[in-house]
Amino acid sequence: MILQESASPADLLTVRIGCKFIYEVSVPTPALLDIEPHLEGVQQLLGESLSIGGGLPTESVSNSHDNHLLRLTLPPGETLIQHDALVEVLATEDLYGVEAAEFVTPDKLPADYLRYVLPSRFCESDRLASFAWQTFGHLPVGWPRAKAVSDWVHHNIEYRFGSGHFELSAWDIFQRRYGVCRDFAHLTIALCRALNIPARYVTGHLPDIGFIDPGSPMDFHAYAEIWLGGRWFALDARFNVPRIGRVKISHGRDAVDCAFFTTFGAVKLNYFEVWAYQIERGTVHVGDPIDLTKRLDGTLTMRRTLAR
């Protein structure tokens, strides 16, 4: 069911998100951490805890996309980083209203959004422009073209778990025809930008609300957002269906702007775990052990929180 955006408390869902990982370095190594929710719109933080190496000093900074980062220095040896949060989101499918959203030509875009129609390191829209216009240029502008891009990527790129690599770009994926969610996002963005549709890269959590649990380990997720009708809409060619309950961490031109951990030196990842699932508000507290018996998602039935 698609709900109106002017949702009442009965239409709000609570999602538990978090991650735990251990990094090892041999010398002091500067780093940037980007794992906390990007609070915007109706995404509301109910509670949060973040532990970094038992109390390593950090400095809060923001980048040019208004993402919240923490700057720190990893000491020699292992460092445990753990984040846990409860976030309230609307029980609304993320493409609600997109069909009526109008396309804005580049000459009328807000100045800050022009970067989202230009090529970037991992989204070479200039190299894909000829293919994009030949394949989608006959369609009506705006959403029909963006939807066709998502459909094409979904049906022509094979999702292959574990095939990702930090050097691969949209052009690489276009040629080899398989990849992971990062690659689906980069190719979607590049094709949309080639058609003058503003598009940006997003990292975050995607619980399986109203969606069958695929059975794979929970992980961070990457997808695209397109700007139509004065707002951003999620465009996720990996699944190619509207989803509920996304929790955004970062957005930017491509994966360079949204890495959950950036180190300025050699580093080894010794442990990695991510969680994102719907819970009944008040039954779980930040820092509680991960208990999937309290999970409400993973089925085609969406269970709402009762009005408070």
Rank of each mutant, 00 (worst) to 15 (best):
G54D: 07
P57E: 15
P57F: 14
T58F: 03
T58Y: 06
T58W: 03
E59V: 15
E59W: 09
V61L: 15
V61Y: 13
V61R: 15
S64M: 05
H65N: 10
H65C: 04
H65G: 00
D66S: 06
D66I: 00
N67E: 12
H68D: 06
L69M: 11
L70M: 12
L70S: 11
T73E: 15
T73I: 15
L74A: 13
P76C: 07
P76T: 11
P76N: 11
T79P: 06
T79Y: 09
T79M: 00
I81E: 04
I81P: 05
Q82R: 13
H83Y: 15
D84W: 08
A85F: 06
L86P: 07
V87A: 05
V89P: 00
V89Q: 04
V89T: 08
L90H: 02
A91S: 12
A91V: 05
T92W: 03
T92R: 08
T92V: 15
T92G: 02
E93K: 05
E93L: 09
L95D: 03
L95T: 11
Y96S: 07
Y96K: 02
Y96L: 04
G97V: 01
V98Q: 01
E99I: 04
E99T: 08
A100R: 05
A100D: 13
A100V: 02
A101K: 00
A101V: 01
E102A: 10
F103R: 00
F103A: 06
F103I: 00
V104L: 06
T105D: 02
T105H: 03
T105P: 00
D107W: 14
D107I: 12
K108L: 12
L109T: 10
L109A: 05
L109S: 06
P110E: 10
P110I: 09
P110H: 08
P110C: 05
A111F: 11
D112T: 07
Y113S: 03
Y113R: 11
R115I: 12
R115M: 06
V117Y: 02
L118G: 01
P119H: 03
P119C: 01
P119I: 01
P119D: 08
S120V: 07
R121L: 02
C123N: 11
C123Y: 05
C123D: 12
E124L: 11
E124N: 14
S125M: 04
S125T: 13
S125R: 00
D126V: 07
R127Y: 12
L128D: 13
L128A: 06
L128C: 09
A129Q: 15
A129E: 15
S130M: 08
A132K: 05
W133P: 09
Q134L: 12
Q134N: 15
T135P: 09
F136R: 05
F136L: 10
G137W: 13
G137P: 12
G137C: 13
H138S: 12
H138N: 08
L139R: 13
L139C: 11
P140N: 04
P140W: 01
V141W: 00
